[in-house]
Amino acid sequence: MASSLNKPELIVNGKRLDGRDFGELRPLKIEANVLKNAQGSAYLEWGNNRVLAAVYGPREATPRHTADSTKAIVKCRYSMAPFSGLADHGRTGPNRRATEISKVTKEVFENVIFLNEFPGSEIDIFIEILQSDGGTRAAGITAAAVALANAGIKMKDLVYAVSAGRIGEHVVLDVNMIEDNYSDADMPMAISPKSGEILLLQMDGGLTKEQLRKGMEMVIEAGKTISKAQRDALKDIYKK
């Protein structure tokens, strides 16, 4: 979280800086099947986020010793392009933040993929953040779920992710970059919409128990819109 110096007013007349209500999502657009070589892929625009996700496999696990003879292993690489930020030039390759996000993302998809179908194989999920504007891990998970379905990988459910946060006394949905920099809490979550189960939950900042509850409920409510965008993107592949 950035210093409190020069903190902008994030809420004016009951609206957020970009004109949204507290519980309103940024515009979301998803296209599936965008890369030729990948088994499955998706491109997503969410606010100013631009995210590409691709899936390879199931294919033989390499190196061989990483293979599990009883089930497929999932590998995930979340990575931010050096030009993705507004102000700074990032470094390519995995840093500590990306390593952690890759790990929790992998765990989300281990929950829903039918791993027993492909023993000894690996399923690779690649998430490239081409442009970042807050909530990139949620955008990456939402895109990767579409790419996995596009790859024809059997899954219990089509996972979505979005974050809730707090600005002053207000619990808000889908925190963007400037809000994230100055907000009082950020809580990305990934949900299996069929059951409402929480597959990813991270938080930092400060939330009371009541604010936590409210944030979780907002994330569940937002699932209707996000899931529809995901499912429409998949069905649109066949309507062209």
């Binding site: 929790v104 765990e107 929950n111 929480i198 939950l201 991270q202 009371t208 936590l212 509850r213």
Partner: peptide
């Protein structure tokens, strides 16, 4: 106040569980 949270591994929690555990 809750300051940080992290869920790990491939299993899941429900909202009710998180509420109670908080």
């Amino acid at each position: 106040v809750i300051r940080a949270m992290q869920k790990g591994l491939s299993g899941s929690f429900t909202i009710e569980e998180v509420d109670k555990l908080a």
